[in-house]
Design a protein around this nucleic acid. Structure first.
Lengths: 164, 164
DNA sequence: GACGTAATCTACAATGATTGTTAACTACTA
DNA sequence: TAGTAGTTAACAATCATTGTAGATTACGTC
């Protein structure tokens, strides 16, 4: 079996949690998502899981992913797409989200450390986690932009984006 | 009437939208939130609005705030606190969110422009909006170490009780 | 200043994502 | 192999938010 899935299962075992067939299956699905650089929704993973195990419930998928997130093996990120996304890569990174097609791309995180230092020294805040999300349009969607704009009512889009 | 509220109303008028008593009221409430550096939930603003206009519906508040956001006068930000927050300041800035008490603090945004340049040149993405959220613990909550919510000013629900 | 129309209003229902509950089941240890 | 803690699936409930429809209202036009 593959490497990442084994690590996830080992994390369960390390915490004394039981290695159920559902957890094993989800660990392999998380690994596949990782390999494909995907950020599937919980619902999407549930559908994939049901291909192998038709009776697995959505609730179990939610629970298991929440457990993996608590173990620090994945991240559950809210990217404004309506539902939480499973991010199989727990290392810090930024996300670009295309407003048109919903595509999500990881990107290295280049936050200025001064910001966090200032938060800690000036305000006493301890930063434990960062979410950096860029929203915009990917190349494919921008090339179709003119065609789509015709379909949109005037003023619908022009007013709600923040230009710089 | 105060300055910011007038600007918000002017923005409605500029778009040919009608100046209803509900919109006027909400504009003044947004101004107050701005003056207090608050990030109230829609629900919280609805409660405040009902103090002046008991029959105003939550739906109207949602709609009006969505309109103000489309006009670029406010931002509706999802900070992972369970519901959308009204950010009366549309200029780019980062948010610090305390995991314990839910307090939200604005902070200047120090993103490295190289990241966005790389996104645009390497991948063809055009960044239109950024969300930068720091999660952690504020000084008050860290000193308590109980993990429970602390009292917030004004006794409303704009900042607390949004645990997951 | 009144009118007509488009826009908005409220009340209510519906949605969609997520979480809680409970009884049945299962993996693991002894 | 049995006991038991922990997990599962079905179902209900919750929460924030959005959709619908008929009643009401603001505002440009006359």
């Amino acid at each position: 079996m593959a490497v990442l899935a084994e690590e996830l299962i080992a994390a369960f075992r390390r915490k004394g949690m039981k290695i159920t067939p559902q957890r094993q299956l989800l660990c392999t699905l998380v690994e596949k998502a990782h390999d494909q650089h995907e950020h599937p929704t919980v619902e999407a993973l549930h559908l994939r899981a049901m291909e192998e195990m038709p009776t697995i419930s959505l609730k179990t998928v939610y629970s298991t992913l929440a457990e993996l997130a608590e173990l620090g093996m994945i991240r559950l990120v809210a990217l404004g797409t309506g539902s939480v996304r499973v991010d199989p890569n727990p290392a810090p990174h930024a996300h670009f989200v295309c407003r048109s097609c919903g595509r999500i791309i990881d990107h290295p995180l280049d936050l200025d450390d001064d910001t966090e230092s200032a938060l800690e020294s000036d305000l006493g805040f301890v930063v434990e986690e960062r979410d950096v999300i860029y929203r915009g349009r990917c190349a494919a969607c921008r090339s179709q932009e003119t065609g789509e704009a015709v379909l949109l009512k005037e003023g619908d889009v022009s007013g709600n984006s923040q230009h710089r």
